[in-house]
Design a protein around this nucleic acid. Structure first.
Lengths: 109, 109
DNA sequence: CAGAATCCGCGTCGATACTG
DNA sequence: CAGTATCGACGCGGATTCTG
């Protein structure tokens, strides 16, 4: 029987990579909109500074987002997908499509 | 710009459906193994009674798992995917494949 | 076997204010 | 503009025990 408890269970590894409330949403808006600035992410997500900056920092370390900082005034920092997270694009889109069917199911009851 | 804050954002709807620590893992083991009994789920996941029974109850109400109870002694209850959650199968598998690539990346560093 | 009940720590998450 | 600092609440999630 396939189990989730194995350290090498791929689903376990994948789940750990996107755990938390905001990682998937962040990947989503980056998928849909491409490169975004910090405040654009914030608006698109409806997230607080604490959660956004912490989550982005984690994701950067895990290689899920790329951060580019321009030394201008006012500051400009842009976030985008990486090679690793870019591979999630079809999955994100399929997952989204599934969300649409859920939505249409809700309407009919 | 595509935003996550809209109530009708499909990603938002989809995320809400699988939120929490255990819903995706449960769907995964049901995808991989087919119908499972309560204790089989428990073993495959490494989850406590509280979390398993609560999460299953939620998922049943949301239409993500089907519960069939046989009135035998000792009791037997079997859980399986539904039409709605069955649609997630390709996504779960793709997500798993992504987990494999993560795993292979970990090995090489 | 398939849960329900209870108790509780700790991490998640958010609001608010502040800074280079 | 792009964050950091601090504080606090809430509830997720777990250990243990018990039941039909």
């Amino acid at each position: 029987m396939i189990v989730f408890t194995d350290e090498t269970c791929p689903m376990r590894v994948a789940c750990r990579a996107i755990e938390g409330k905001w990682k998937l949403p962040i990947l989503y808006v980056l998928c849909e909109n491409g490169t975004l600035r910090y405040n654009e992410l914030k608006k698109a997500l409806g997230i607080t500074n604490v959660m956004l900056s912490n989550t982005l920092k984690e994701m950067e370390q895990e290689g899920l987002v790329a951060r580019v900082q321009y030394n201008e005034i006012p500051p400009r920092v842009e976030y985008s997908l990486t090679e690793v997270s870019g591979a999630l694009l079809p999955i994100v889109q399929a997952f989204c499509a599934w969300g649409e069917t859920l939505l249409s199911l809700e309407e009919t009851d």
